[in-house]
Computed example of a mutant assay.
Amino acid sequence: METTAVGTRLVEVVVPVHNEQRALRESIARLHAYLATTFPYGFRITIADNASTDDTWGLATELARELPRVRAVHLDEKGRGRALRRVWSESEADVVSYMDVDLSTDLDAFLPLVAPLLSGHSDLAIGTRLARASRVERGPKREFISRSYNLLLRSVMGAGFSDAQCGFKAVRTEIAQALLPAVEDEQWFFDTELLLLAERHGLRIHEVPVDWVDDPDSRVDILRTALDDLRGLARVARKTLSGAARIPMPAQVRRAELPRGMARQLPRFAIVGVVSTLAYLALFTMSRQVVPAQAANAVALLVTAVANTAANRRFTFGVRGAGGALRDQVEGMIAFLVGLALTSGSLALLPDGVSHGVELVAVIAANAAATLVRFLLLRVWVFNPERRRNAR
């Protein structure tokens, strides 16, 4: 027996598909049965076919005829982001969501995902595979790539959410339709761009730990997707620094503001960080020709840490004059030691005989984490204006 919907609230579940004739019928039937028997709100399942060349579209239309509250939409071009944009922008539901067709995420997490949005407690909700309460089964390669990517988001872009790539998300419809015109990507980076834009505008992002099992038949091109994501991150960073990312939001949406002074400090710190990272990579590469990786890392990190502290002292935090410069450098060494521990640890975890390229990837990921720690230490301790006034 189907459950009775709570009031007239409607949740639209989009399942983007491309050449998924093998899994489509079983997955949609399972999803429909689960929602019809356990979900306390009204729902609609929309199969969004992205230019499939097999019998996916035929199966989708059959399922729409056979199952109540299932419909099918066809797009002539590929792209998960394109499919979500099409359905979400036209939806009249209270909440729009999506999940991958393989249903890798346990469906028991769906109600906790959308409930805070229907209650008005949150604006967006994401499933996270990186929480302690999550139970995840996937190979070490995907695990490393996923964690490195999300670490990069948190350290370089300042993201507060933990898992940008889990195919299990929901948004209040009015929020989605306000954000969509500013989201440029039509492929896999669509999720990340949407979340970064939402966070930039002070929207509330709710995270739900999920149980997740990797689909061994996944056909995602990991390398191409990673490169596209990096290009997308660079584009979003440019828009954010230029102020072009601002868009009008519904008046009732609660906004968040950066702590005092941070709006000026973050772009300057980012510029110093980019220059320091390039200098570090150059020094590491040159030193690596004559000394082991750990020694090359220590030398490169020490030289760039001293220069980085001096540049941030003057450029980011506006400290002038020689007074206290030595003390600032000594305290800045704490950040150096954190960076040294992270990068040395990442190198130590690598197996013997790996290529120089793999070493570079490892130290870049570790440096991204160290960059976040450095900014926090410099802001709240080394160059804290209240602390400096008390010292004087």
Rank of each mutant, 00 (worst) to 15 (best):
F317E: 10
L179Q: 02
R132M: 12
R80T: 15
T8K: 13
L223K: 07
G167M: 09
A298M: 01
G232Y: 10
S355E: 11
T285F: 14
N150H: 11
V236R: 03
G232C: 09
L203T: 02
L107P: 05
A170I: 07
P116N: 03
I205L: 07
N297A: 15
T38C: 07
V13A: 03
R238M: 13
L301D: 00
V213S: 10
V338C: 02
A251M: 03
R231C: 11
L241F: 13
K169R: 15
R86D: 11
V220Q: 12
A93R: 08
V361H: 00
G7L: 06
T316R: 00
T128W: 02
H121F: 13
I271H: 08
V13D: 01
L117I: 05
A29C: 11
L130D: 05
V171C: 11
T128E: 03
P16I: 12
R254A: 12
A48L: 04
P112A: 12
K141W: 08
K141E: 11
R231I: 05
L194K: 03
V136C: 05
E184K: 15
S218G: 04
H201E: 09
S104T: 13
Y98W: 14
T37P: 01
S355G: 15
D328C: 08
P112Q: 12
S162E: 15
F383R: 01
R86K: 12
R135Q: 08
V17R: 08
A282L: 15
L278F: 14
F315E: 04
T240A: 11
L349S: 14
A178Y: 06
V183D: 04
L340H: 06
A282D: 05
S97L: 07
L67I: 13
S134I: 07
G202V: 00
D55N: 12
A226M: 14
V11M: 06
A60C: 02
L111P: 00
Q289P: 01
F375A: 00
A5Y: 06
A293W: 03
S104I: 06
I126W: 00
G58Q: 12
A125V: 06
L153N: 10
R255D: 10
L151P: 08
W381N: 02
L35T: 02
R219G: 06
N312A: 02
T105Y: 10
L360H: 09
H121C: 10
L302F: 13
I28F: 00
E186L: 15
A125N: 07
A51L: 09
L281C: 09
T37I: 01
L372W: 14
A368Q: 00
M262C: 10
R25F: 01
V319L: 15
L67N: 09
R65V: 02
G243E: 04
N367I: 01
L281K: 09
I45Q: 04
